[in-house]
Design a protein around this nucleic acid. Structure first.
Lengths: 131, 131
DNA sequence: GCAGATGTATTAGAGTAGTAATACACAAAG
DNA sequence: CTTTGTGTATTACTACTCTAATACATCTGC
């Protein structure tokens, strides 16, 4: 029910903001099914102490996830993983992926790439990342 | 032979850095065939005056394009569009598009999207941007 | 109500990216 | 050689992002 602080790892000097690393890890856990609706994220102070990071940085990550609807703030308890709005959440995710896809497509077309060439690049990327 | 300064338009308050807008426009012109190898970009001062932007900002854009091999610095003359290395340039472009594609794919997979779902999003993006 | 847990608002500091001002180096044309 | 045209190096200013320190508000259980 409670997600262990040790499930998180951050690299402060990686160039990727810590709060963003945390957001991605939570999203990844949910996508992988390792976290279920109703599970509770570690408290900002507990995880901050574990990772040796200021707890406001954790708070920022949790707040972003709440804004996305991924978790809900249950006062006095913590951040609880949402499960109710799977569909609308999925629509938001599709929108975000679409924005990223657009960037790649626009760049490719600007460089004179063809429809099939772009599709080939996308397919190669998908195959590689499907483990 | 000389590219007119009026061919450029920038929106300083768009959030996209001015120098990046200029880079994209030059790449777009070349991809569209409106600019040929041997053509000369407007001088940094001339274009800066036209766009009401500091000429060092123009210089930064031109320098980035030179680093990419898109143009060459012909001393005393200006920035001349390159044409010799079409093939290797294309390889670099493919690499850049691939990086952008990876970002979209990784994000989609993190959200639990399937192979066919991702492909659908990419196809939709391509069709929309092929005018 | 008090103690202890939660996250938050406000503010500040460091670092970085974008833009700009100045002075400079080099080349072509007269 | 001087003038006028290129782009560049250096430096500084501004805005924004990320992180952090402090003080605060709310809720639960006693």
């Amino acid at each position: 029910m409670d997600i262990s602080p040790s499930a998180f790892v951050v690299q402060p000097s990686s160039g990727v903001p810590i709060y963003r690393q945390l957001i991605d890890q939570v999203r990844g856990m949910i996508a992988a099914g390792r976290v279920q609706p109703g599970d509770v994220l570690p408290s900002v102070r507990q995880l901050g102490a574990e990772l040796e990071v200021n707890f406001m940085t954790i708070s920022k990550a949790w707040a972003k996830l709440e804004a996305e609807g991924v978790v809900e703030h249950d006062r006095g308890r913590g951040m609880v993983v949402t499960g109710a709005r799977r569909v609308s959440l999925h629509a938001e995710n599709q929108q975000q992926v679409r924005v990223l896809a657009d960037q790649a497509v626009i760049r490719g077309l600007q460089c004179g790439m063809s429809r099939s060439e772009l599709l080939g690049i996308f397919k190669a990327s998908i195959e590689e990342h499907l483990q």
